[in-house]
Design a protein around this nucleic acid. Structure first.
Lengths: 69, 69
DNA sequence: CCTAAATGTCAAGTATACTTTACATAAAGA
DNA sequence: TCTTTATGTAAAGTATACTTGACATTTAGG
C-alpha cells in the first residue's frame, strides 16, 4: 500500500502526536503508517478519511503488483 | 463496524466461497466478516470496494458509539 | 425423505496492527 | 552551545485478522 498521510498531515501543520490524538492511536502507530511499516486497520483508515475529508481509497492505494496487499 | 457485504454478495448471486476466491481470502474469512466477527484489513476492504464498485465507507461504517472500532 | 451445496462455527496456529517504554537523531531557537 | 520539539526506530507484549481442517446446521432440489 501507498499512502498520502504524511502530505495531508503536513498540509494541516499537524505533528504526528497531534494527528495520533485526533484519531485515537499512538504517535508510533502514525509514524509506522507514514513510513509504511504497516497498513492501518480499516476503522483507523476510515477515521483518517473522515478527518482529512478524503475517501479512503484516495488516501490509501493498493500496490500495482499482483498479490502482496 | 457495520457492513453491507452479505447483501452485495447476494445481489451478485455469489457464494461466500466464490467471493473469497475473487478477493483472495478463505471462505471462513468472508463468513467472519459478514457475521461481524471481525473487520476486514484495509487492503481487503479496498479489494472488496473495487469488486463491488462501491467506496469503502459505503460498504463499511464505523459504529455510532464513541470508542470501540 | 434424501442428498448436496451453502453457511455457520470452533480450535489452533501464524501474520499483522497496535501498545508502552526507551533511546537516537535532526532542526530550531534562546 | 544548550535545550526543546519532532521524528525515526527498536523491543516486547497484546489484540486482531487471517489460515487450514473439521464438523454441525440450514437450504434447495431430486
Amino acid at each position: 500500500m501507498k499512502n498520502r498521510l504524511k502530505v495531508l498531515r503536513a498540509e494541516q501543520n499537524w505533528t504526528q502526536e497531534e494527528l495520533a490524538q485526533r484519531v485515537g492511536v499512538s504517535r508510533q502507530a502514525i509514524n509506522a503508517i507514514e513510513t509504511e511499516k504497516y497498513d492501518p486497520s480499516l476503522p483507523l483508515a476510515i477515521k483518517l478519511g473522515k478527518l482529512f475529508g478524503k475517501p479512503v481509497e484516495e488516501m490509501f492505494a493498493l500496490d500495482e503488483n499482483t498479490d502482496h496487499g
